[in-house]
Design a protein around this nucleic acid. Structure first.
Length: 463
RNA sequence: GGCGCCAUCGUCUAGUGGCCUAGGACAUCUGGUUUUCAGCCAGAGAAUCAGGGGUUCGAAUCCCCUUGGCGUCACCA
């Protein structure tokens, strides 16, 4: 096998989809596994859908997951440029080569005509396909139209009655009848290539060895197979990954769902390693049945031919559970770092948080929970007693805590219990009085950490 | 509709002809620990392996059909 080179080829048309990361996971892992390279190529060939700034968000997202490419627009490399809009002349050259070889042809049909044609076909219950009108044009007719400066596209000339087979690493061989394949446009009238020409040319030129992509691509892959044949190039190994479905099972995970976006996780306090773990686990199983495993472990153990063949529904609940597991088992120093990274610009007292960490770890599902759990440590909640009973409890609390000899967890607990018993109240009441919420971090430890002075002061303010 | 893919608990899956009266995880429910909430521990319910035919001594596992789901049919990727 020659050098492993994998790639992700997103188009900058919006926020990065979690499905893109799912693909990159395999690109990246495969490249690491075989000491290869992982390449990022920006497929910005659709000017109508181009979104300003989308490219930067892609870079940032990959970095956040630790899936930084070895080659790409940012890091450069020997196969650049890595942006398709900067490679236009290349595609034009190859499109022309195909025309010369008789594998492609000029098409002058207008959009209106094509639309009408499709309508007609649908009415007659035929599958919509280009009717090959321009394929019949003579050389001189083409010359004439070109001279008249008519807008044109270049289409691939799909052969008749041929079986096109796709060898897929995961799915095995899949056969297609060439008669069902459309004479796809490969070069648009604006001089930009379509996806089909773009990928094939670039994957070849960039010496991509393995293409991992979603299953939604298999039906257009025979076109790519043909293109490789036309050019006389060796086709990279293809592996089509099972789709990630909406949690209701209806269709591909769509942008309608907030959690389809990579930002949802970063902003929601999810850990990239947990997300990656989850993403790999929905289609791959650890040989020992483990569900929590590191990316490195995944890299050494996974076998691309052994991943699941079914589309998997996205289960945010399970991801959240995994995230909680990661937090719970995380080294204190690392967690501390993650927390302060998550709240940039905030002055956080490391000493206090370090003491809270053991209490926090089993209670934080995401880093975002840090705020709700520890809020009252940094500012007294704006509350007041809700009834006469609470007023009395506060008074008792003040005197009992004031008299406390030692300010530690055990003593505080005894004191709290005394007050509780006297009024036959329950813990949640105290939680409300101290934190503004009826549940949270263990109270005795929390009060100890916060300190006697602060606590008494707050009680004074309450009464 | 054409073409292609897929089909095991609610969800993700294990399972590659006998070890399966189908295992694990999430979720759900119950009990225990306990200062609230978590966590942890123990346990329960939950899949006639989509349905129907074969093949075989034997099928969740192999074959066929049906059904269902998904994908795709653009000068979008």
């Amino acid at each position: 096998m020659h050098n492993v080179r994998t790639r992700i080829a997103p188009s900058p048309t919006g926020f990065p989809h979690i499905g893109t990361i799912y693909q990159v996971l395999f690109d990246f892992a495969y490249a690491r596994k075989y000491q290869g390279k992982f390449i990022l190529r920006i497929e910005d060939t659709d000017r109508t859908r181009f979104v300003e700034g989308a490219e930067e968000v892609i870079f940032r997202s990959l970095d956040w997951f630790g899936l930084t490419p070895d080659e790409g627009p940012l890091q450069g490399g020997p196969f650049g440029p890595y942006r398709q809009s900067e490679r236009l002349s290349t595609y034009q050259k190859y499109a022309l080569e195909l025309v010369e070889k008789g594998h492609a042809y000029y098409c002058f049909c207008t959009k209106e005509r094509l639309e009408e044609m499709r309508k007609e076909q649908e009415k007659n219950h035929q599958s919509p396909m280009y009717d090959r009108t321009c394929r019949k044009l003579t050389e001189s007719e083409v010359k004439e139209k070109r001279a008249a400066d008519l807008p044109y596209v270049i289409r691939m000339k799909v052969p008749d009655n041929q079986t096109v087979v796709l060898h897929d690493l995961i799915m095995g061989d899949i056969e297609f009848e060439s008669n069902t394949i459309d004479d796809q446009v490969i070069l648009k009238s604006d001089g930009f290539p379509t996806y089909h020409l773009g990928v094939v040319v670039d994957d070849h030129l960039m010496e991509i060895s393995h293409v991992f992509r979603g299953r939604e691509w298999v039906s257009s892959t025979p076109k790519h197979v043909l293109l490789y044949e036309f050019f006389g190039w060796e086709m990279p190994v293809h592996a089509h990954l099972p789709l990630i479905l909406n949690s209701d099972g209806k269709g591909k995970l769509s942008k309608r769902h907030g959690h389809a976006s990579v930002d949802y996780y970063r902003e929601g306090g999810y850990l990239p390693e947990a997300v990656l773990n989850y993403l790999s686990n929905i289609v791959w199983n650890h040989p020992e049945g483990k569900e929590i495993y590191s990316f490195d472990e995944f890299v050494t153990l996974f076998d691309i031919t052994q991943i699941t063949s079914q589309g998997a529904r996205f289960d945010l609940q399970k991801l959240t559970w995994m995230n909680q597991q990661y937090i719970q088992n995380m080294d204190d120093d690392i967690l501390l770092q993650k927390i302060s990274d998550f709240y940039p610009g905030r002055q956080i007292d490391d000493a206090i948080i370090r003491k809270l960490l053991p209490l926090l770890k089993t209670r934080m599902e995401t880093l975002k929970d840090f705020d709700t759990l520890t809020g009252f440590f940094f500012a007294a909640p704006a509350i007041s007693p809700r009834d006469q009973l609470e007023k009395e409890i506060i008074l008792d609390l003040r005197s009992v805590l004031e008299d406390l000899g030692k300010w530690n967890e055990q003593e505080i607990l005894v004191a709290l219990k005394t007050v509780l018993e006297k009024h036959s109240a329950r813990m949640p009441t105290l939680y409300y009085l101290f934190t503004g919420k009826e549940k949270g971090l263990p109270l005795p430890q929390s009060l100890e950490i916060l300190g006697k002075e602060k606590i008494l002061e707050r009680l004074r303010l309450l009464s």
